Simulated assay, not measured.
Amino acid sequence: MSVQPVIVAGVGMHPWGKWGRSFVQYGIHAAREALQDAGVPWTDVDLVVGGETVRNGYAGYVAGSTFAQALGWNGARIATSYAACATGAQALDTARARILAGMSEVAVVVGADTTPKGFLAPNAGERWDDPDWLRFRLLGMTNPAYFAMYARRRMDLYGATSEDFAQVKVKNAKHGLANPNARYRKEVSVDDVLGSAVVSDPLHLLDICATSDGAAAVVLVSEAYAAKAGLTDPVRIAGIATVTPTFPNTVLDMPMLATDASGGVDPERTFKESIGDAVYAEAGIEPGDVDVAEVYDLSTALELDWMEDLGLCKRGEAEALLRAGDTTIGGRIPVNPSGGLACFGEAVPAQALAQVCELTWQLRGRARGRQVEGARVGITANQGLFGHGSSVLLTR
């Protein structure tokens, strides 16, 4: 199914860190920067979509309304989306759908978060039908342990080593040096990673991303509005996928805790591959056309998984690309030129939008100090919860 593209008119971010202020301040900063980048007056905006943040009280649950009020009521319609780490992409898809339906011309999509110290735990209360809550409360499996299962699986199936995982961090840390919005801007070595504390074997502290405060925003406009505003050769969103698995032709990934298959299901096909398949089909683009990728690296091993899930290499070949330098800026398929979550940390409703910001800068040729030369097609990936995630494909 092919879908008409929509225009990315502007992008903006609030630098990520631990600032200890309201998520609203971060979101407004990013939104105003995106509007300025687009050259779009606030009075032209007819839709505001907010990425929900579950850690910031009622204002976070109605993020669309919160951001609309803080920006200044102008009569715009509002929406709020939540999909865990895929929140930003789902919010973007909501805005895109209204534009394609002719119900909106100019949309501002905003995600922002203020996070607590330490890993992200489920909210208070008992939720016995929530697999995420169950793995925390009954199994004691916090996110680092969850990531470690993925890492151990790669080691067992494909011969990955702790040194490979460490090299992902080394690469991303080097990429992030030139990113003014990154929280961590310091080179590390393989020895630094392997010498950091073991959090959940085989992953060390520097293999796992931190939690951060931060924000990102994207201004989407219709083709008609772009023509009227004189936007020439703009970046376009050619596809967004937030698909669920198709049973029984896929393996439900953790946190369902299924790492292999039974009943004739191909054990090499995870639901994350379905996300890649869907976005390529929607955009009419092949994996070989992709020039640059921003993927979900909550842990170093997850970056390697996503490279294969998106078809950027064959199953079990990600380590070979990494070792050959193919995923570094200047290589065949640079991955996470922004520095990734390794350099930003996790601000859940903002991270999928931050990836779109980075790819927009890359495709415009404006990613100073980290530019992927000649980039015309970029792809993102994020994992949500319970068998869903997201991928956004951008072209120029």
Rank of each mutant, 00 (worst) to 15 (best):
V279C: 15
V279A: 08
V279R: 03
V279P: 13
Y280F: 15
Y280H: 07
Y280I: 04
Y280G: 14
A281R: 15
A281L: 08
A281G: 15
A281M: 09
A281P: 02
A281W: 07
E282F: 05
E282Q: 15
A283Y: 00
A283E: 00
A283Q: 02
G284Y: 07
G284F: 08
G284H: 12
I285D: 04
I285L: 02
P287R: 10
P287I: 09
P287K: 02
P287W: 00
G288I: 07
G288M: 07
G288W: 03
D289F: 00
D289P: 00
V290P: 01
V290W: 04
V290H: 02
D291V: 07
V292M: 02
A293D: 08
A293N: 05
A293G: 07
E294S: 00
E294P: 00
E294Y: 01
V295L: 06
V295W: 11
V295F: 10
Y296H: 10
Y296A: 03
Y296G: 07
D297F: 09
D297Q: 03
D297A: 11
D297H: 05
L298H: 04
L298F: 01
L298C: 06
L298Y: 04
S299Q: 01
S299W: 00
S299Y: 04
S299I: 00
T300A: 14
A301K: 14
A301F: 07
L302K: 03
L302V: 02
L302A: 02
E303Y: 08
E303Q: 04
E303H: 12
E303T: 08
L304Q: 07
L304M: 06
L304K: 03
L304G: 00
L304I: 01
L304N: 01
D305E: 13
D305V: 11
D305W: 11
D305H: 10
W306P: 05
W306D: 13
M307P: 02
M307G: 10
M307H: 11
M307A: 05
E308Q: 10
D309S: 04
L310M: 13
L310E: 07
G311H: 06
G311P: 06
G311D: 03
L312V: 01
L312T: 01
L312A: 00
C313K: 05
K314Q: 14
K314R: 15
R315L: 10
R315E: 11
R315G: 05
R315M: 12
R315C: 02
R315I: 03
G316L: 03
G316E: 13
G316D: 09
G316T: 15
G316Y: 12
E317H: 11
E317V: 15
E317Q: 11
A318Y: 06
A318S: 13
E319N: 13
E319W: 02
E319G: 08
E319V: 10
E319H: 11
E319R: 08
A320H: 14
A320N: 15
A320R: 15
L321K: 15
L321N: 12
L321H: 06
L321C: 12
L322S: 13
L322Y: 13
L322T: 02
R323L: 07
R323T: 04
R323E: 11
R323Y: 06
R323G: 05
R323F: 06
A324W: 11
A324M: 08
A324Y: 08
A324I: 13
G325T: 14
G325Q: 09
G325E: 07
G325P: 12
G325I: 10
D326K: 06
